[in-house]
Write a protein that binds this DNA or RNA. Structure first.
Lengths: 331, 331
DNA sequence: CTGAAAGCGCTTACAG
DNA sequence: CTGAAAGCGCTTACAG
């Protein structure tokens, strides 16, 4: 007796408004032509009944959704909540919603991809999780545009949006050399990530060109990782003149470890991070770092996805957006 | 010419497997009975074609989705990414996905709610955004279960899951008094939030009972807010014996401001936060705080939602989960 | 501009 | 256990 039926449909509205169900549909479908009179009748009836078009029925028939899949792993790193916020805001303006997929594993799992495929998402953004190639196929086959954000794969099989990691790290090397550093340390993030690799190559190639000795240590893009690695380096009693740490959150760990051992920054050693997360500017840290232009990177990603959603081309490119060195008090 | 048709349907699988479309459907619908032989034929054909059931068609007919709407505002506060992570993980295990809604405004907007309603989400979690009552109606009318997470509204109109804020803050007051604090300061978060109000009442009522003088300052649950408020208090040159700051991220701002003014913690003053975010345990801060039992709070929320999804009752309650005082080096 | 009708890809009684 | 058929709530040619 109406108890179970609580979903108002276009048919209900049509009945009340005294028009056909098609007309109701047209009122809610932009681009369709409806007379002013019909529109008013429909909207009045819809308001009275509390009607809202069912997105699922829409998607079923148009074979397109207004959902963007966003895959993320390092949500513990403040860089990514910032990214999530900006994507959500940008897509909301365009009428798209975010299906958030958190992946625990380094490599994105088949099951995570299947979720996105089952929901027939309009587009996919993968941030800091790596993607195996067999997974690609599914997206390509289903003509779902995909962007790797802050990650890339060497061959141009995917559209990717990154900061100019290679160039940036070179600039950081030059800057540290200018500051008089005669030996340096690079602390990497997870070694299988493109960002860590590129930052390493960009940094060390300039050092080699200038005959500045360096050592590389492998860490994992977490605060604890940076902290522990620095403790280990300190224990060896050979403090380098400067550290380039592959991201800010690790760099904060390095700074804390140095301080705990009463090694004065920036006189005894210097530290440079990467990302420019909020905390880098906190007075306690005042970390010199490279600013990742999140807004531009997000804009680039959104524009590409929207274009591909309108008309799928499968076009790929590795896009680089320029960041900037932010000098603070750790150098 | 097959170019445009790239979506594999149950019908395609049925044809290849030589069974009816209903049988294909049954293979993917748990609980339906299919012979082993049919199942194998179907799965083989499905694999060959790359078939996946369309969630939208499913949802349309079952009138239920496997999507949970999660509304969040303070994603800049590390407490919330942690919460997001745990919700995503828990729901993934249950086969549910997260539609992430970021809301900029203090009060959750009508448009945010409409997104959730249009997608006919199975349940909704609202974290740190407040909810006006006219919005409630829509959820109730559509029988969509709702949980306020880390927020509550006085009358029991919603199911809410919080930490035992009142009791916790009382315990913090007692602890600071035991530590010999003779005058205290409470720095609030956004004043219209239940958490900030409860923490204030819990804290100050114990102080009053013990005749300990205190002052209250209003801030906004951000690092900058805590930092600036502390600078202001310091400028008045009356440093209290201790601070209770309504959340950790503000407390870190307070600690930084005190340090910048060479006020030694914990000898000259003490600081207690609330949440126990990762950073509270970092050696630089070592913040004494109240641990919010996120895992339990998430578990409670998930259990309620799942029960209401299975059979909607509309039952509401303000659930409190006990946290614990974590004593570190700021007291 | 409008209505009747087909159909999107599924689930689910209903027979057999 | 299996198939034919109805129907979920929409969009969209097709006539008028």
């Amino acid at each position: 007796m109406g108890v179970l039926k609580y979903y108002v449909t276009a048919k209900d509205v049509a009945k009340l408004a005294g028009v056909s169900q098609s007309s109701v549909s047209r009122v809610y479908f932009k681009g369709a032509s409806v007379s002013k009179k019909t529109r008013e009748k429909v909207l009045a009836a819809a308001k009275e009944l509390g009607y809202r078009p069912n997105e699922f029925a829409r998607s079923l028939i148009t074979n397109r959704t207004k959902i963007i899949g966003l895959v993320m792993k390092g949500i513990q790193n403040p860089f990514y909540p910032q990214v999530l916020k900006q994507f959500t805001t940008s897509f909301k303006e365009l009428g798209y919603s975010i299906l958030f997929v958190y992946t625990n594993n380094d490599e994105i799992q088949k099951e995570d991809i299947e979720i996105l495929l089952n929901y027939n998402v309009a587009g996919v953004i993968i941030t800091d999780a790596s993607l195996s190639l067999n997974v690609t196929e599914d997206f390509k086959k289903n003509r779902i545009p995909l962007v790797l954000f802050n990650r890339k794969i060497d061959n141009e099989q995917f559209y990717s949006v990154c900061c100019n990691n290679l160039n940036a790290s070179g600039k950081i090397a030059e800057y540290l050399i200018e500051q008089g550093c005669s030996d340096l340390v690079y602390i990497s993030g997870n070694e299988n990530t493109s960002t860590s690799k590129e930052r390493e190559i960009g940094f060390t190639s300039i050092l080699e060109k200038n005959n500045v000795p360096y050592k590389k240590y492998t860490s994992d893009y977490t605060y604890e990782g940076g902290y522990k690695m620095a403790q280990k380096i300190i224990a060896q009693r050979k403090i380098p003149a400067g550290f380039f740490v592959a991201n800010d959150i690790m760099a904060l760990g390095v700074v804390d470890a140095l301080r705990e051992n009463s090694i004065v920054i920036p006189t005894e050693t210097k530290v440079v991070g990467f990302d420019n997360i909020d905390m880098a500017s906190w007075p306690t840290y005042n970390l010199t770092t490279w600013e990742q232009p999140i807004t531009k990177m997000v804009g680039q990603t959104v524009n590409y996805l929207m274009a591909e959603i309108v008309e799928f081309s499968g076009y790929t490119e590795n896009v680089e957006v320029n960041g900037a060195l932010i000098v603070r008090k750790t150098t």
